Amino acid sequence: MNKLISIVTPCYNESENVVELHERIAAAMAKLPYDYEHICIDNASTDDTVAKLKAIAATDKRLKIIVNARNFGHVRSPYYAILQAKGDAVIAIASDLQDPPEMIPEFIEKWEQGYKTVMAVKPQSQESPLMFLVRRTYYMLITRISDVPLVQNATGAGLFDRAVIDVMRDLDDPYPYVRGLVSEIGLPIATVPFKQPRRKRGITKNNFYTLYDVAMLGITNHSKVPLRLMTMGGFAVSILSLLVAFFYLAAKLLFWDSFQLGIAPILIGIFFFGAVQLFCIGMLGEYIGSIHTKLRKLPLVVEAERVNF
């Protein structure tokens, strides 16, 4: 019996892309000696994405659809679909065609070589140069401060062996950073570099909040460095403040009539320390929010409907 490959494509309002997505995945898998299932999880689209998927599923039983009861976000929904897959390996790619389905044979080739995880990385991209620079800088930062080495410039697309999926399922993380989680697991990781194409149809669902959410998720889940920097920074600033205070006290005692303290250093000090405190409180809030999310243990998603399962 041939091994089964599960291909997971999360989507939200991708009506203009799902037909081509299905065709290109089918064409890529036709070249390979494996059975496959294509699981498309829809995050409560408001266009006719689900209707188009159902029309395809009526003629192709390999296409399986999960329709969420509401939009459960860009982290929980794809992860839930990965855990529902039954394949010996699970491939996750975006529905916007910026992760080309033609990479699937390369993922499987690396898997056949013994790698348990294969990650797509984009050393080049046709997206905005400014956004690409921001992403690249973030990946360099998170790699430096993470407790484990992370794969730089990973897009989130890739292949996960059944052994990796089983570990993910046992961890039962309600809000995971998958790109960091696979590094935490520690099984061998291969990379497939590609030049990410520009989105041709539809609009991106990412905005400042979603990008910030993923960035903070990567930091709070995989690094204690910010907390320790706040501790060491607070200690250093307190020592500096004490030295400055002693300097002003000595200067005032020695030159009582001629030395004027002035209001400028007082205001600068107040605003500086206020900014430092707000930053530290905000960073602590991110960690507390991450703990709160994990303690609530809400379901990853609630399904409204399944097709072809």
Rank of each mutant, 00 (worst) to 15 (best):
I185H: 07
T210H: 01
V237W: 12
G218I: 08
R136I: 02
M140L: 08
S183A: 13
Y177Q: 01
R136N: 10
F235I: 15
T137M: 14
T143S: 08
M216Y: 06
Y212T: 11
T155S: 14
L181P: 05
T137V: 14
R179E: 06
S183V: 04
T210A: 00
F235S: 14
T210V: 01
L159K: 03
S128C: 05
A157Y: 08
V134Q: 11
L243M: 15
T143F: 07
V151P: 03
M216V: 02
Q126R: 09
G180V: 06
V167Y: 08
Q196R: 14
L159F: 03
D213C: 00
F132A: 04
Q126Y: 08
F132W: 07
E184R: 15
A245H: 11
T143V: 01
N153A: 10
A215E: 04
D170K: 15
P226D: 09
K205T: 03
I185T: 10
I239T: 14
Y139K: 06
D170E: 14
A215C: 06
A163Q: 10
L171Q: 15
D213I: 00
G218T: 07
Q196L: 12
M140F: 09
V134R: 09
T137Y: 13
P188G: 05
K224D: 12
L243T: 15
G234N: 14
T143P: 00
V151G: 02
F194L: 14
L150S: 03
G233C: 15
L240H: 13
K205C: 00
D166I: 02
Y212K: 08
S223R: 11
Y175I: 04
S125A: 14
S183M: 05
G186L: 11
L150K: 05
Q124W: 13
R144C: 12
L243H: 13
Y139T: 12
F132M: 04
A215Q: 09
V178K: 01
G202Q: 02
T191L: 04
R169C: 00
M232R: 15
M168S: 02
D161N: 08
D147G: 11
L227H: 14
A190D: 05
I203R: 11
V225M: 13
V225L: 12
V178D: 02
G158F: 07
P174R: 08
F235R: 15
Y209K: 09
L242I: 15
M131S: 07
D166Q: 07
G186T: 12
Y177M: 03
R169E: 03
R199S: 01
A190E: 03
Y209I: 07
V178F: 04
S146A: 12
L171V: 13
S128M: 00
L130W: 05
G180L: 05
P176A: 03
L227S: 14
Y212H: 06
L229S: 10
A163N: 07
Y209D: 09
N206F: 04
Y212D: 04
Y138E: 08
I189D: 02
M230K: 14
V182M: 06
G218H: 09
R162S: 00
I219F: 13
K195M: 10
T204Q: 00
V178I: 09
L243W: 15
E184Q: 14
I185A: 04
Q152W: 04
D166V: 02
L187A: 10
T210Y: 02
K200T: 06
I203P: 01
I189S: 02
T220F: 09
